[in-house]
Amino acid sequence: MTVTDGRTALIIGASRGLGYALAAEYLARGRRVTATVRGTGRTGLHDLADSSGGRLVVERVDITVPEQIAALHERLAPTTFDLLFVSAGVTNDPEETVADVPTETFVHLMVTNALSPMRVVEALRDLVAPDGTIAVMSSGQGSVANNDKGGFEVYRASKSALNQLMRSFAARHADDPRTLLLMAPGWVKTDLGGPAARLTTDQSIPGVVDTIESQRARGGLRFLDYEGRTVRW
């Protein structure tokens, strides 16, 4: 049985995919974890909680609904976390461009991938310890400098918007000692990444966690990949 190391992680969007893998990895490393799902049904995260010896607590929140974020804050207010990680995100048809994407699809991606994660950061930042870390799941496809092949046009735009909003957040809170991270996990085999992806969660997520741990208490904002390398903006 893994002995807890006393530190606590709050992972937003952990019912499956990268978020679930993050919750499992932090549990394996001895953390106490609070992780969220969006719907009311039972998920693999609930099964993981059942076998965690009480170290994993499952909460429910739809981050596109501000009232639910506020309610989550109220429920968690007595707790201080060492890490807040926002992992929620969606994609669309990679062939859709701004020339043909439906407006509602464009809005859905921007709200889910950029606006809502930052609303979570804004609302829950005070739950994070002063020497703690706030991280959001970005993507290498959010890099403007590295976009020389196109494709995934709207998804790229949503992740670039997320990066820009996080940078603005950092500028507004320049005196905040918390570490801020934009994490690029690589192309991973999940429902979002698809079966052709290069990496498995077992290849990506331990590196993501190692990178987060290496940045602990450093402060400032960085855009890093799962191997700890700086990603060009």
Results as ranks from 00 to 15, higher is better:
1 M>V: 11
4 T>S: 11
5 D>K: 02
8 T>F: 01
13 G>T: 09
15 S>Y: 09
17 G>R: 09
20 Y>Q: 05
24 A>T: 11
24 A>C: 09
27 L>T: 05
28 A>N: 15
30 G>I: 14
33 V>Y: 03
35 A>F: 06
36 T>F: 03
38 R>L: 05
42 R>K: 14
43 T>S: 15
47 D>Y: 00
48 L>Q: 10
49 A>Y: 07
51 S>K: 09
52 S>G: 10
58 V>E: 10
59 E>W: 05
60 R>N: 04
65 V>Q: 13
67 E>K: 08
68 Q>L: 02
68 Q>R: 09
69 I>F: 07
76 L>Y: 03
76 L>V: 03
77 A>K: 07
79 T>W: 03
83 L>T: 08
84 L>F: 12
84 L>W: 10
87 S>I: 07
88 A>C: 15
89 G>L: 02
90 V>L: 14
96 E>A: 10
101 V>W: 03
104 E>K: 13
108 H>L: 09
110 M>H: 12
112 T>K: 04
115 L>E: 11
119 R>K: 13
130 P>N: 11
133 T>W: 06
134 I>S: 14
135 A>P: 01
142 G>E: 07
143 S>L: 08
147 N>M: 10
151 G>V: 12
157 A>F: 06
163 N>C: 02
167 R>G: 14
168 S>D: 05
171 A>E: 13
175 D>R: 02
175 D>E: 11
176 D>M: 12
179 T>Y: 07
184 A>W: 03
192 L>Q: 06
194 G>T: 13
196 A>Q: 08
196 A>H: 09
200 T>A: 07
200 T>C: 07
200 T>I: 02
203 Q>D: 10
207 G>K: 07
208 V>W: 05
212 I>H: 02
216 R>W: 12
216 R>K: 09
220 G>N: 00
223 F>L: 02
223 F>D: 05
225 D>E: 14
